[in-house]
Design a protein around this nucleic acid. Structure first.
Lengths: 420, 420
DNA sequence: ATGATTTTGTATATTTTTATACATAAGTAA
DNA sequence: TTACTTATGTATAAAAATATACAAAATCAT
C-alpha cells in the first residue's frame, strides 16, 4: 500500500485523469478493466491509480469479485471527494440542494421568490442560498465539483441561456452561467427541467433503454428524449414541445399560447381543471384534478381518461418519428395511474405500425419527488466525471496544492488547454 | 524530407493512427493543428507524421496557409490510399459503385434483380458485381477500405439487419454484414436509404446545420434527422416513419399499410397518381406526377400543392418535437419546387410556435442523382477514418507488410484489442 | 493439506515521449 | 535589403511508459 499523502505528486495526479474518469463514470471498476479500457500498461495503470488513492480521490472498496483465482478488488470514487450544488428554479419557488456525487441530498432549502425580481437578483439569491447550504454542512464534504440549474423554459444547452419568451419572464437570452461561475469558480450547467427529469428516469430507473421518451403531464405537457444514451435537445434546446401540437376538431379549445386545438388545451392539468369547473367542481390545476380522481369523482376520471387518449394520440406521432424502445409517463397527472395510461397505450398501439410498437414498453414513472433536482445533480456529475471534465477537475485539485500553471512544463500546459 | 519507404516501420505506423484519423477526418490539417488536437509533443507528432508520409498514407499538399511568418503546409490523405465499395439496393435494381474516399465515383454498374431472389443470392450478386468493378479498375486505387449497403427498409444499424416486414421481402432479421465480411474481409456498414440521403445532404450541402431534418417525398414518404451532427436512428432503426402518421378527416383515404388517413395515403406520389387517375389522367408514380406538373397540368399542380400542405402539417409536428434548425425537402416530388414547398412552409409557420420557427430554414435539396449512393460512401469513409476505424485500418495495412500479430509486443496487441 | 489459477506487487531494462535548445526556411513589413 | 515572425527540422538529455520477469496473496478445486 503506498504511503498516503494528501498533496501527492501533482503532475502524476493530473496525468491520472483518464483513470479517474473511467472509475468515476463506472466504465471500469477494477484494475483489469482499467488495463483493458485505458490502453495503458499494467505498471502505468498501477502508478496512476496509486496517485489517485494517495490523493484520496479513489478508494479500494471492501467488496471483491470472484475470478477463479485471487479475487478482483473493486475500485470506486471516494464519496467525500466533493459535492455539487443544484437549483430547481420554478415559477414561484427556488429549490436548492447540496448533493454528494451519487447524487444524493446532503442538505436542501426552498425559497419563495417572484419571477419579476429578474434573473440577476434571482441568481444572487441562489448564490446566497448555496453559501448557506455550504456553511451549514457538517464534516468534510470535499471540494465543490460543479453547479447545476434547472429551469421550466427551453434552454440552449451549449450557450447556457433560455431561448425565447416563456413563463420565465425576463430570462430570454440572459447569461446564467457567467454570474454563477463568477460566484463560485466551478463549472456550471443549465438545462430545461423536463430534460433533467428525463435524465433522472433514464439513469436511475431505465438505464438499459438508450432510446427512451419521457412524457411529463402536469399543469403543462412536455417531453424529453434520450437518444443513444444522450439527452436530445434540438438545434436551440426547444425539442419536445408536444403540448402545442394541434389536432383539428369542430370544438377545438383555445390554448394559452393563442392557437386552437393544442394537446395542452385538451389534456393538460389546467385544461382538465377548466372542464371540471365548467361542470361545477372546484379545480385549478393538475394537483386538484388528481385529488378529485383519488376521491373517485366520475367526471374527473372520465376527463382524465379522455386526456389519456389525447396524449396517446400525440405520443403515437412521437413514437412514429423517434422510434423509442420505452415511453415513461411522469408528472402530476401520471399519479392518475391506469386511468391515464390505458388511453395512452390504446392510441399508441392503434395508431402506430407494428414495427414501432412490437418491442415498445409504455410505463408510469416510479413515484419520486424532486426528480428534476436529482436529474440536475446527475447532469453535473456526468459532466465533471467525463474525460474532459476529470482532466479539468484534477488540474483544479492539483493547482490548489502545487505551483502555478505558468511554471508547468509544456505538456501540463497543453493538457490544460485541451481540457479547457 | 524523410526517405520514402512503402513498408515503413510497422509499429510506428499503427502507433500513428491517431494522427491519421485527425488528418483523414479533417479535424486537423496542419502540423500546428495536429499538435493542438493530439495532445502529443511536437517531436512525436513529427515522428508519427513522417511514418504516415513514408507509408504513402498522408501527403503534404502543394497548398499552404499564410500565417504571418513561414506559411503553414496543408496535409491530407493520399487520395490513392484506398477505395470503398457501395451498393444501393432498390426494389428492382442494384446500383453498385467503386468510390474514392472523397467520396467520388470511380466506376459504377446497375443490375436488375428481383427481390424474390432472396438476400443470400442477392448479396452474392452484389459481391460478384463488386469484383467486376475492382477487376475493371485502372491504376493503383489502393486497398479496399470498407463496404456500404443502402436499403429501402428500416435497418437496425448496430446489428446491421433489416427490422420488420417491409418491401424487402425475406430480408427481415437476416445477417447482411457477415456474408459480405466473409467475401471481402473489410468492415461493412448497412443503413436505411433515407438516413443515407440525409447524411449526404448534411455533409455535402448543409455542414453547418448540426440539427437538420430531411424529408424525402417520392413514391413513399420518409424522414431522416441529423441530431448534434449524427444520424438519429431510434431504438431499432425505425425512426422517421412520418408517412404513416394519420390525420383524421371524413374522407380519410385507405393507405397501403391498412390504416386510414396516413400522410402517405394523402400526399405520397402513389396517392397523387391515384387521384390523377380518378380524374382521367395517366399516372402511376411520383415521376409521372412530376411529368404532368412540368406540363403545367392544372389538376396535377393543384394536387401537388395540396400534398405540400399535408406534408407541411406533419412536418410541423416533427419540427415541434425535434426542434431542427433546417428542413431539407428531397425526393422525386421535390422537383415540383415551390408548388410543394410553399404548402410545407405555410403549414409549418402556421402550426408551430415562434420559438421553433424563428430561426428555421425550409429549403429544397439541390438536384443530384444517386444521393443515397454518395451517402453510403460517406458513411463508410466516416467510420473507417474515425479514431477506432483508423487504428483498425493501420493495423490491417501494417499486418500485410509485417510480422504476425501474435509476435507483437504486448502494447501492439492491446491496441488491436481496443480497436476491435 | 496441496496444487492450480488469477490478481496484485515490485523491480529492472528498454523504448517512447517530452522538454529544451539551436538552426533553417519562408514569408511579410518596413 | 533587412529585420521580424512563424513554421519546420534536427539533436540531445530527461522523463514517462512499456515489456518482461519474479514473487506473493487469495481464492478454489481436489
Amino acid at each position: 500500500m503506498p504511503p498516503r499523502d494528501g498533496a501527492g505528486d501533482n503532475a502524476a495526479l493530473t496525468n491520472a485523469s483518464d483513470i479517474f474518469s473511467l472509475i468515476a463514470t463506472g466504465a471500469a471498476v477494477s484494475r483489469s478493466a482499467l488495463l483493458e479500457r485505458s490502453g495503458l500498461s499494467r505498471v502505468t495503470v498501477t502508478q496512476r491509480l496509486n496517485a489517485l488513492i494517495a490523493a484520496d480521490l479513489v478508494e479500494e472498496a471492501a467488496r471483491t469479485l470472484p475470478s477463479g483465482g485471487r479475487p478482483t478488488r473493486v475500485l470506486g470514487v471516494n464519496p467525500q471527494v466533493g459535492h455539487v450544488l443544484v437549483a430547481n428554479i420554478g415559477e414561484s419557488h427556488l429549490h436548492l440542494a447540496l448533493m454528494s456525487p451519487e447524487p444524493t441530498v446532503i442538505a436542501q432549502s426552498t425559497l419563495r421568490y417572484d419571477v419579476t425580481e429578474g434573473p440577476a437578483a434571482t441568481l444572487d439569491r441562489i448564490a446566497d442560498g448555496f453559501r448557506h447550504l455550504l456553511s451549514d454542512a457538517d464534516g468534510d464534504i470535499g471540494i465543490l465539483l460543479g453547479i447545476g440549474l434547472s429551469l421550466p423554459a427551453p434552454v440552449d444547452y451549449k450557450r447556457g441561456r433560455v431561448v425565447g419568451p416563456s413563463i420565465m419572464r425576463g430570462w430570454d437570452d440572459v447569461d446564467i452561467i457567467g454570474p454563477m461561475v463568477g460566484h463560485f469558480g466551478v463549472p456550471v450547467y443549465v438545462d430545461n427541467d423536463v430534460n433533467l427529469m428525463t435524465l433522472y428516469e433514464y439513469r436511475r430507473h431505465f438505464r438499459l433503454s438508450d432510446d427512451m421518451l419521457f412524457i411529463k403531464v402536469g399543469t403543462g405537457i412536455g417531453a424529453g428524449f434520450i437518444a443513444d444514451g444522450k439527452i436530445f435537445r434540438g438545434a436551440h434546446g426547444a425539442s419536445g414541445d408536444i403540448g402545442h401540437i394541434q389536432f383539428e376538431s369542430e370544438d377545438a379549445p383555445l390554448c394559452r399560447c393563442g392557437k386552437l386545438g393544442c394537446v395542452e388545451a385538451r389534456a393538460a392539468g389546467w385544461a382538465i381543471a377548466r372542464d371540471l369547473r365548467a361542470l361545477g367542481f372546484q379545480a385549478d390545476n393538475a394537483r386538484d384534478v388528481i385529488a378529485l380522481v383519488d376521491q373517485q369523482v366520475p367526471e374527473a376520471i372520465m376527463l382524465l381518461r379522455k386526456a389519456g387518449r389525447v396524449i396517446g394520440e400525440v405520443t403515437a406521432d412521437v413514437v412514429s418519428i423517434l422510434n423509442p424502445g420505452l415511453v415513461v409517463v411522469g408528472g402530476t397527472l401520471a399519479r392518475g395511474g391506469d386511468f391515464l395510461l390505458s388511453g395512452i397505450r390504446e392510441l399508441v398501439y392503434q395508431r402506430c405500425l407494428p414495427l414501432a410498437t412490437r418491442e415498445l414498453n409504455i410505463v408510469l414513472a416510479p413515484p419520486q419527488a424532486d426528480i428534476a433536482l436529482f436529474g440536475t445533480g446527475q447532469l453535473v456529475v456526468d459532466n465533471v466525471f467525463s474525460p474532459a471534465g476529470a482532466s479539468d477537475l484534477l488540474n483544479r485539485i492539483a493547482s490548489t496544492a502545487g505551483r502555478p500553471a505558468a511554471d508547468r512544463p509544456e505538456r501540463a500546459k497543453r493538457r490544460l488547454e485541451r481540457a479547457g
